[in-house]
Amino acid sequence: MAKTYVSATINGESAEFLCETQQTLLDVLRDVIGLTGSKEGCGSGDCGACSVIVDDRLVCSCLMLGVEAEGKSITTIEGIANGDTLHPIQQKFLEYAALQCGFCTPGLIVATKALLDENPNPTETEARYWLAGNLCRCTGYDKVIRAVMDVAADMRGEKVA
């Protein structure tokens, strides 16, 4: 079947690609563009390991068609750090050891970024419900939530300073 030409912005840079209509955005990111940070856990929207931000909305890239990325701005885990400098969220996940096997981590960090972009001062309950779509089978979530609450406080402090 003929491929479709798609033009989008990925992590701040213009990107052009060809994809088949049945390829998901996750397929495109991993197999066409070569950005393998976003993971396929379940492929059905249950685990959140494929979470990316599309035009300021946190979505599951496994449930979006690649062709629907046309004209959209997409942020993946590869776009979170500033060059070699980790984003404060990434740094805090390391400090708290908020990961074990790491498979869910890209999705959790992208989801945390989307949370703090929208709500820089979440309650613990708000953070837990926001991250409800990101499953982690290793950590039991406690260290993840502590990292999120701490980095939120840090980032609010940076804005004041």
Binding site: R57, L58, V59, A132
Partner: peptide, 9 residues
């Protein structure tokens, strides 16, 4: 209903 990601889509 669902999760934040799904509700956004």
């Amino acid at each position: 209903s669902a999760s934040p990601q799904i509700r956004n889509m």
